[in-house]
Simulated assay, not measured.
Amino acid sequence: MVPALAIILLFQLVGEVVSRALHMPLPGPVLGMIGMVFALSASEGLRELIRPVAQGLLSHLSLLFVPAGVGVVAHIPTLVSHGLALALSLVLSTLLAIVVGAVTFTLVARAVRSYPDE
């Protein structure tokens, strides 16, 4: 278990070092995860070493949401005072994203002459 966790953290560390050294806009853990995906797809042994630890981490992933929940509870007065504005911005941004996605899909479908009704 310890070697597998060390490998996972090593990929995160390498991603962080590369991200900071090259001043990339991509976060280091994301770069590390991309590197780990390539490494796992290339090595069956690495996959088998990391699989049990990864499954254990994924089974307890909900624990990572606890700090976010505590943060929400800690800022309830702010949420109450700005609740209407937050709710309105969430609803409008969601609707805007849906509309932009639908329009983009339609334009791309027309560009490649493929229609959803066909």
Results as ranks from 00 to 15, higher is better:
residue 106 T to E: 06
residue 23 H to M: 02
residue 71 G to N: 12
residue 1 M to Y: 08
residue 57 L to V: 01
residue 51 R to V: 00
residue 50 I to K: 01
residue 65 F to Y: 12
residue 52 P to S: 08
residue 30 V to F: 14
residue 73 V to Y: 07
residue 105 F to P: 00
residue 29 P to L: 08
residue 55 Q to I: 11
residue 46 L to N: 02
residue 80 V to L: 15
residue 77 P to V: 01
residue 55 Q to F: 09
residue 61 L to E: 06
residue 91 V to L: 12
residue 98 I to F: 09
residue 15 G to Q: 02
residue 104 T to Y: 07
residue 116 P to I: 07
residue 49 L to F: 02
residue 75 H to R: 13
residue 1 M to G: 09
residue 30 V to S: 08
residue 73 V to K: 02
residue 68 A to V: 15
residue 4 A to F: 08
residue 38 F to C: 05
residue 90 L to I: 07
residue 3 P to I: 06
residue 7 I to E: 13
residue 91 V to K: 01
residue 107 L to N: 02
residue 45 G to F: 01
residue 79 L to V: 08
residue 62 S to D: 11
residue 24 M to H: 09
residue 113 R to H: 15
residue 41 S to Q: 05
residue 24 M to P: 01
residue 55 Q to T: 10
residue 36 M to N: 00
residue 34 I to R: 01
residue 11 F to P: 00
residue 88 L to W: 02
residue 98 I to H: 06
residue 73 V to D: 01
residue 70 V to E: 02
residue 40 L to G: 13
residue 25 P to T: 06
residue 10 L to F: 14
residue 74 A to Q: 12
residue 115 Y to P: 01
residue 112 V to A: 04
residue 34 I to H: 03
residue 15 G to L: 04
residue 45 G to P: 01
residue 107 L to R: 07
residue 86 L to N: 06
residue 25 P to W: 07
residue 88 L to A: 11
residue 69 G to S: 08
residue 1 M to D: 09
residue 82 H to D: 04
residue 66 V to T: 15
residue 1 M to H: 09
residue 112 V to F: 13
residue 92 L to V: 11
residue 38 F to D: 00
residue 94 T to F: 12
residue 95 L to I: 07
residue 42 A to Y: 06
residue 113 R to N: 14
residue 117 D to G: 01
residue 78 T to D: 08
residue 56 G to H: 09
residue 99 V to R: 07
residue 47 R to C: 13
residue 25 P to V: 02
residue 57 L to D: 00
residue 3 P to G: 12
residue 111 A to K: 14
residue 104 T to W: 07
residue 82 H to A: 05
residue 87 A to C: 02
residue 22 L to V: 13
residue 12 Q to S: 05
residue 80 V to H: 11
residue 24 M to F: 11
residue 78 T to Y: 03
residue 6 A to M: 14
residue 50 I to L: 15
residue 30 V to K: 03
residue 11 F to V: 08
residue 79 L to F: 15
residue 68 A to T: 12
residue 8 I to K: 02
residue 86 L to S: 08
residue 99 V to W: 03
residue 108 V to L: 12
residue 84 L to N: 06
residue 47 R to N: 12
residue 97 A to Q: 07
residue 8 I to C: 00
residue 41 S to H: 02
residue 66 V to N: 06
residue 106 T to Q: 08
residue 113 R to D: 15
residue 117 D to K: 00
residue 45 G to S: 10
residue 92 L to M: 10
residue 59 S to A: 13
residue 2 V to H: 04
residue 101 G to H: 07
residue 98 I to T: 09
residue 18 V to F: 10
residue 75 H to Y: 04
residue 60 H to A: 05
residue 84 L to H: 03
residue 88 L to H: 03
residue 110 R to K: 12
residue 86 L to T: 05
residue 102 A to N: 06
residue 7 I to S: 05
residue 28 G to Q: 11
residue 98 I to G: 04
residue 108 V to C: 00
residue 1 M to N: 13
residue 37 V to D: 14
residue 30 V to T: 11
residue 55 Q to Y: 13
residue 93 S to F: 07
residue 28 G to H: 09
residue 71 G to L: 10
residue 88 L to S: 10
residue 42 A to S: 10
residue 79 L to S: 05
residue 46 L to C: 04
